[in-house]
Design a protein around this nucleic acid. Sequence first.
DNA 1: TGGGCGATTGGTAGCGCTAACATCTGTGCC
DNA 2: GGCACAGATGTTAGCGCTACCAATCGCCCA
Lengths: 371, 371
Amino acid sequence: MEVDQPQVSAPGTGASTAAIENPPGAAPSPEAARTSPLMTDVARAAGVSPMTVSRVLNGHPSVRPETRQKVLEAVERLEYRRNSAARTLATRRSQTIGVVAFDSTFYGQAACVRGVEHAARAAGYFVSIATVKEVNERSLGEASDSLVAQSVDGLVVVTPRASVLEELRERAVGVAMVVAGGSPHSGLPTASADQEAGGRRATRHLLFRGHETVWHVAGPEDWDDSHGRLVGWQSALADAGAIEPRVIRGDWTAASGYQAGLELARHRDVTAVFVANDQMALGVMLALKQSGRRVPEDVSVVGFDDIPEAAFFDPPLTTIRQDFEELGRRSMRLLLQAMETGSVASSAPVIPEFVGRLSTADAGAVANGLR
Amino acid sequence: MEVDQPQVSAPGTGASTAAIENPPGAAPSPEAARTSPLMTDVARAAGVSPMTVSRVLNGHPSVRPETRQKVLEAVERLEYRRNSAARTLATRRSQTIGVVAFDSTFYGQAACVRGVEHAARAAGYFVSIATVKEVNERSLGEASDSLVAQSVDGLVVVTPRASVLEELRERAVGVAMVVAGGSPHSGLPTASADQEAGGRRATRHLLFRGHETVWHVAGPEDWDDSHGRLVGWQSALADAGAIEPRVIRGDWTAASGYQAGLELARHRDVTAVFVANDQMALGVMLALKQSGRRVPEDVSVVGFDDIPEAAFFDPPLTTIRQDFEELGRRSMRLLLQAMETGSVASSAPVIPEFVGRLSTADAGAVANGLR
DNA sequence: TGGGCGATTGGTAGCGCTAACATCTGTGCC
DNA sequence: GGCACAGATGTTAGCGCTACCAATCGCCCA
């Protein structure tokens, strides 16, 4: 059988027949720019080979300045945009990093994702996000799968629960991966804040103010942050020889804080409470006040996070500030490192900062000039 | 430039050199499957052609069930993942939609982005996000460019200011684009909430309660939402024949609300305030209270948005609820439509809902049992 | 003055997938 | 029984870019 050799597409014979009759340099006719220009078009316009265009666009050093100039002008003139799919296919790198995040309106999570995103863009990466409604192996796995399917170059997992990551490491083989938040003991490079130090700081503040002991409204049991803050609280109590009241659990929402506040109000001896986040502290304070306990005169309250609204609660909330964006930035830095070197060192935990406001007072002191 | 460097993470570096002498022909060692399997591999494993594998994976109808089964099993067995860059290159569709959003911690924006994301994933699309720090032509343009460079199939712009979109339409040629939030008059398909109706509702509520007039703390002038709420307030006032007090401007933050509250406190005749969002309302209330004005006994306050914390402000805030996630979902629906049909109809604005709580009282009524 | 070296540039061959055809079954019908 | 026809599968040729190597050029030193 005769194999008729199909027309070898000689360079210059370009694909589009229409383009042939369109002399270069002509004013862009309305019909002309049907499809967006290709690297070949730029090359032709600049009088160089496609390869040279590629080199210019990739910042390759050995291109003569004037050649580079010509190419850049052609790029400008044709409004050329490199096709990233083709680039990804050829280089096996997508210039995209994936973010797996817990889908919540919690300030901290959102701010952290923001930090990652900005750092990524600053480093020249695109960002693809997948949020999960529940934090468990399966959902995180699916999310990371979908990101890996997009061939991301790296993965930042913003998760409250590091224990859940074991399996993820296996699913996302070949992709650099770091964790933001969570405990730094996950076996993966992690950027985290020292929750325990924060919890200790909050508790000590209340103890120093003369309170015999400090109650604690904790977050969900399965969050590393909850755990850290609780442990910090316990250790500060132990150091001071104070008795440890029963822990009350919330779910981070103001509503759960309100419930916790109602329960606290039933105990006549409560004078100081460390609440594991600001939203819950808001609820706690409302419940306390509605139960006839003044804040801070009767009960002092310390929150955690320092969300932007905390300074405008009534009373303004004493709290522990976390820099979530910084956390995001750090994890991105870690990821860049991991992608380049394969290194796996976690960065040292950030120490949260104490922010004194008006929701705390000395024990037993019916404040006079506090408000 | 360096090629893939299979950095063995094991501490014992000596082991890696030994691995080089790994003789060929040995049983599939753990080292073997260096690269991920290709469609060709699946095809071979299933005893069919690559094209058939492709068809199965794309849900093409004309594949015999048993063939499909064989292929799926092979896919499973080899843990095959389709390379999306290659797919994108071949199909010219990336299965990714881009989201351009204003980079803020504002609850509404974040919730809206979430809504988009979930709807997108439900529809089988990846989501790539670019946030901008400032809302102007240039920054939005850059963000959308970077998304378009990723060859997204569609674009959702979550913007507070629709006027800024003119230029965007030209830059993102060939990409379907819709707007979430903003005014519905941008010339682009838009999913929005009826801010004006919300503002009117809030103002009327206060008027009905017997207040002679209602003051307004507005958002930034250049946000469509601010404008709509303000117009609603004005129209309700006009309808009632009430005089229109001077507008006080904030920037959405609680801090700016606090400043506004301080100013309001200087006017002895203020008995009712409609604040353009809940965060500012929080600040307003604190300033009012610190200035010796009780809420709601002396001054009634209505917010806007119904953020999750609003119910736990002190007093719990009467407000206008917006369903931001629904907004996101709607804009995604619009986008899918636009991508399929090229249609450009905006969806009807959602009407925000009134939520009565304790921050409002009848004019002049020194409430007894309100708390 | 010739060979060699580095800096520049070009050609070729894919990256992994799918659209569009070509081919091969099996079926129903006259 | 042969032919049209549809369903199931295979073959070919790119999608737009870059890695790799080859070719070319200028310039230096012996």
